[in-house]
Write a protein that binds this DNA or RNA. Structure first.
Length: 1019
RNA sequence: GCCGGGGUGCCCGAGCCCGGAAAAGGGGGCGGGCUUAAGACCCGCUGGCGCAGGCCUGCGUGGGUUCAAAUCCCACCCCCGGCACCA
């Protein structure tokens, strides 16, 4: 086994060299041949390519290779996506880790020790790092644990020598390093990528291309400006996302509605933060924390009272805020404030459950709908100072849930028996119950709006707008209404806080002004996207709905960031175009970049007008050539290349990209290119698990291709990935599967070698066995072709590497049983099959197929051979039916032997129904096919064949309904002869059942045979 | 909550779109063969009943349509994934 894998590795090196020498993977414009342009999402080089990525690429490659054999001029290019921030964060973490490691003494030893802890205790790497640091008494370094984790991951899981890890402290060196590892992996796996066209997204010419794209989008009016909240490091003044935080936590941003309660007779406002603005109509009081410190902050001309923390946070969300005073929570207790929605006066009361670290530190109290508020009020009734006020407060119901009576919060609280605000867990559960019920089923009551003090006109307008509205809509409308008259605002908070940036600072929310958006919500753009999708083939088709939903759901999307690698926004260079926005139409760039580069066109000349000509055919060739100093011939060649290769015929990626990249891909093509250049197909595949487990960096169960190839062999990895799951579902890479695949390839090799050097003439007549085997194979050819057109690699490989192999083994065995062995006829048959079989394996295991092909004496490359076609004249339905029939008979004999508990049968007699019975069956089949019922058949058939046939006729009708297609057609043809089939394959049956058999036609006896159902006597 | 996917035999998993065979294929288990032994490999069994190829039950739960439903329709229960400025 080991030897065989080594052999597979060996031949992969050999053929990789040969193909490269022959430039097999380079595709150029060829007007004589139909083109096929395949692309897969390019990798982000923050790690070497692993098994998960290679599934997408292996599918793409098998498909590309298949299409090439089908006669297409296939282009499969690849590039690298350098845009973005994770690489920057990672390289900084590595830098930090290296300095710690150097500081600790011998870095490699430390890494080994950490790995040992991980292995021995079976804990994630992060835990092992922590444990190690504690062990050596360096708890002070715990803050940098995740940085160390990366280095361990690189060194141990990715098997990068420490000397090389040390070089990854600069973003670019890291990106280049991983890009080159990935490229090498792709080459090892034999992907037919045209590497001449490789680029990275920070190459100057690519940046010019993106610049053009954004000018286009801008001209079309799809780029907009607005404000946008982001997670932010307040010290380093930089946005923070998952990879920038300690412990890689994704900061989640939550938007609170602010409702401004003016303090009566004072120029001060209490900004209550709430997620349930619609309950403002039921506010009975406002809570502040009596022990907390509050600041008076001037916000947009009003004086807000905010908790100390909130006063700090708001600086990042509002412009020109000014702290002008300070007070204690207790200072404002008992004051009356005005509910801006209703105009009612309500008191300010103390509540210790109000957390000054969350939102504004001011909360409005709605006892009817918030369990906390209800219980807190009850609690307060005992208070010497505020007890009297608390007692006087009655919950005000403003939301009604059908099927319930009265306000929900008190009901639930009483039901659960909650008494004090200290029962936090119970209260939270109660809150969840009330909130979710009201959110799903609640409606805003008309009575709630009647509380609004004001002109009848105002109240009526509110009623018209919101009475009876479902909670989600009522909430939105209330918040909007309050904002419109200056009593409402927004406050952003980190929902899962506190989150710390990798610099150690607590992350806040910053509202960015002038953020640039792509407006995917634009109705015109949306309808273009819809049309593009409708015209496209989606594989598997079941994902279409998800695309449709995504198109509908997409709104504005921030398309630029303040930092990271990438292309500056052309009209506002402070911004860098974000990674998912600069990777939507880059496939077009593949069609021309090698032309422009090999001609030495300086990137700075690739101004928008140049791209307009190349990609849209706009402008005058000569004029542009002169204006930008680019040779006319080059421009023309680029234009022709684009025209030839575009549109993309097939776009491949993992299913995680449906909701973003793939849909943006559709949108942007629809916006920028004319309809005939819109993509034709999207192919989506599932993920890869390893031995049933999700791959994760923390578990360290990621296998980079470089490691996998050393362990297995390229063809094995390809085949396992292609065979282990249906396209849309998740695959599982298991060693067990690997060994099965290896064993099968070995067997296939042995079979192929049987016909090495065999030269025999086509025989005049085939045996039943030969005819069956050939016919089944021809159907395989047709089937595999169809399966590959539908990208069903699992089924296609199943036919080629499992079913066909087994059938071939069966054929060879049965030849032996018949005493024929590999005679001249069989040799011809086998050679016929093998030659085509090897070709069909080429898309999946190209190296293996190439080696076998040459072993058969061919001089051409199998990978560029034409795909086999279906040889109609070899289709023999009668032979297939005969074989199926014989197998059914064998099964029946075995069943009888088993049920009758016959230990060693001596002789078996098979009596076949007389020929004319077959006519009855034919008639029955005819009725079944026409959808006529049993009754109808019986009444007609009895007339025709007589009463005494009635019993048989009924049985035959039932048989007809369940007949396989093969047998049904054989019976219909009238050419199928049971005796002939049984006689010719007698030896096969005998070997299977272990007794001599005798075949004859029924001449009367105790068991009456039916057609296809002979009477069997076992002695 | 919204959107998407799914609940099939001891386990994993096809089949459901286009209704018509206890339900492909694995794995595990049991029995047998091979072997000094283990492994690998091969054969048989693996819902129930059945001394002749048969019958019964069955594909989340409950209804319905149909000569016929894992497959179509309705209601319900449960599980998984995504929910954005991140590649």
């Amino acid at each position: 086994m080991e030897d065989f894998v080594a052999y597979l590795r060996e031949i992969s090196k050999k053929w990789r060299r040969e193909w490269e020498k022959a430039h097999l993977h380079e595709a150029d414009v060829d007007p004589e041949r139909p083109k096929f342009f395949v692309t897969a999402a390019f990798p982000y080089p923050n790690s070497p390519m692993h098994l998960g990525h290679s599934r997408t690429y292996s599918i793409t490659d098998a498909y590309a290779r298949f299409k090439r054999m089908r006669g297409f001029n296939v282009l499969f290019p690849m590039g690298f996506h350098y845009t973005g921030t994770p690489i920057i964060a990672m390289s900084e973490k590595v830098k930090q880790a290296i300095s710690i490691l150097e500081d600790l003494g011998s870095p490699e030893e430390v890494i080994e020790k950490i790995w040992k802890i991980k292995e021995e205790k079976g804990v994630p790497i992060s835990k092992a790092v922590e444990e190690y640091l504690r062990e050596i008494g360096r708890e002070d370094l715990l803050d940098s644990a995740d940085a160390l984790e990366y280095v361990v991951l690189f060194a141990k899981v990715f098997e990068i020598p420490y000397e090389n890890v040390k070089k990854l402290t600069e973003p670019l060196s890291m990106a280049n390093y991983f890009a080159s590892l990935t490229e090498e992996g792709m080459k090892e796996l034999g992907y037919m990528i045209d590497w001449r066209r490789k680029f990275t997204t920070i190459d100057p010419d690519f940046q010019k291309f993106i610049t053009w794209q954004f000018y286009k989008l801008y001209e079309l009016g799809y780029v907009e400006r607005g404000t946008h909240p982001v997670a932010w490091d307040p010290v380093y003044n930089t946005p923070v996302s998952q990879h920038d935080t300690k412990g890689d936590v994704e900061p989640e941003i939550e938007e609170y509605d602010i409702i401004l309660f003016k303090i009566k007779d004072e120029d001060l406002y209490l900004p209550a933060a709430t997620l349930r603005a619609e309950t403002v109509f039921g506010v009975t009081n406002v809570w502040v924390n009596p022990d907390a410190t509050y600041k008076i902050v001037e916000v947009e001309g009003k004086k807000w009272i905010l908790s100390e923390k909130a006063a700090y946070k708001i600086k990042f969300q509002k412009e020109n805020t000014k702290e002008i005073g300070e007070l204690k929570g207790s200072d404002i207790l008992g004051k009356m404030v005005i509910n801006p929605a209703t105009g009612e006066e309500v008191p300010v009361l103390p509540a210790s459950f109000v957390d000054p670290n969350i939102a504004t530190g001011v909360v409005m109290s709605v006892p009817a709908h918030a369990p906390f508020d209800y219980v807190a009020l009850k609690e307060l009734e005992e208070d010497p100072e505020f007890g009297r006020i608390a007692k006087s407060i009655k919950p005000v119901q403003v939301i009604r849930v059908p099927g319930t009576d009265g306000p929900l919060a008190p009901t639930v609280v009483e039901k659960m028996g909650i008494r004090t605000t200290k029962e936090k867990e119970m209260l939270e559960e109660a809150t969840k119950e009330v909130y979710s019920l009201e959110y799903r089923k609640g409606r805003l009551m008309e009575e709630a709006l009647e509380r609004v003090k004001g002109e009848a006109r105002l109240v009526a307008a509110l009623k018209a707008l919101m009475a009876g509205e479902a909670v989600p809509q009522a909430r939105e409308k209330t918040a909007k209404w309050l904002k419109l008259f200056g009593a409402g605002d927004s406050f952003y908070e980190i929902k899962n806080g506190p989150v710390y940036s990798r610099f150690g600072n607590e992350v806040v929310v910053k509202v960015l002004k002038d953020q640039w958006f792509l407006n995917y919500g634009d109705p015109q753009w949306k309808s273009l996207a819809r049309r593009a999708l409708a015209k496209m083939r989606i594989v598997p088709e079941s994902f279409r709905k998800e695309f449709e939903n995504t198109i509908e759901w997409l709104q504005k999307r921030a398309c630029a960031r303040t930092r990271g690698l990438g292309t500056p926004l052309p009209w506002d260079k402070r911004w860098i175009i974000e990674s998912l926005s600069d990777s939507t139409i880059y496939m077009a760039f593949y069609t021309v970049d090698h032309i422009l580069r090999s001609a030495g066109v300086p990137p700075e000349r690739l101004e928008p007008e140049v791209w307009d000509y190349i990609l849209l055919g706009k402008g005058d060739l000569r004029e542009i050539s002169q204006k930008y100093g680019i040779d006319e011939k080059i421009l023309k060649a680029a234009r022709e290349s684009f025209e030839y290769w575009y549109p993309v015929d097939s776009r491949h990626s993992g299913k995680d990209l449906i909701k973003n990249h793939l849909t943006f891909f559709i949108f942007n093509h629809a916006a920028i290119f004319p309809e005939d250049k819109w993509p034709r197909q999207i192919v989506v595949n599932g993920f890869v698990n390893l031995e049933g487990k999700k791959m994760s960096k923390s578990l360290g169960n990621i296998i980079p291709i470089s490691v996998a190839v050393k362990q297995h062999a390229p063809d094995i990895i390809r085949l396992v990935l292609l065979h282990s799951a249906e396209l849309g579902t998740d695959a599982d890479f298991r060693t067990e599967m690997v060994s099965r695949v290896v064993a099968n390839l070995k067997e296939i090799k042995n079979i192929v070698e049987l016909v090495k050097g065999v030269e025999v003439k086509k025989p005049g007549r085939l045996g039943l066995l030969d005819a069956w085997y050939l016919s089944a194979f021809v159907k395989d050819v047709e089937n595999v072709t169809y399966l590959m057109e539908s990208l069903r690699t699992r089924e296609a490989t199943n036919v080629l590497y499992f079913i066909l192999l087994n059938r071939t083994k069966q054929y060879l065995q049965e030849l032996d049983a018949l005493g024929r062995g590999l005679d001249e006829v069989a040799k011809w048959v086998l050679k016929y099959v093998v030659e085509r079989w090897v070709k069909m394996m080429a898309p999946f295991t190209p190296y293996f197929a190439e080696e076998l092909w040459h072993g058969l004496g061919h001089k051409s490359f199998v990978v560029t051979e034409p795909w086999p076609s279906k040889d109609e004249e070899l289709v023999d339905p009668i032979a297939e039916a005969a074989k199926e029939y014989v197998e059914k008979v064998i099964e029946d004999i075995k069943e009888i032997i088993k049920v009758a508990k016959i230990s060693s049968p001596k002789k078996i007699r098979i009596e076949v129904a007389p020929k004319e019975q077959a006519d009855y069956l034919k008639a029955a089949i005819d009725y079944v096919k026409k959808g006529k019922g049993l009754k109808e058949f019986m009444s007609d058939a009895v007339k025709l064949y007589g009463k005494k046939a009635a019993k048989d006729l009924k049985a035959l009708y039932e048989m007809a309904t369940g007949l396989s297609e093969t047998l049904r057609e054989a019976v219909e043809s009238g050419r199928f002869d049971e005796v002939e089939a049984l006689t010719e394959l007698k030896a096969v049956i005998e070997r299977e059942v272990g007794a001599p058999i005798e075949v004859k036609v029924y001449e009367g006896g105790k068991k009456k045979p039916l057609p296809l159902k002979p009477a069997i006597y076992v002695e």
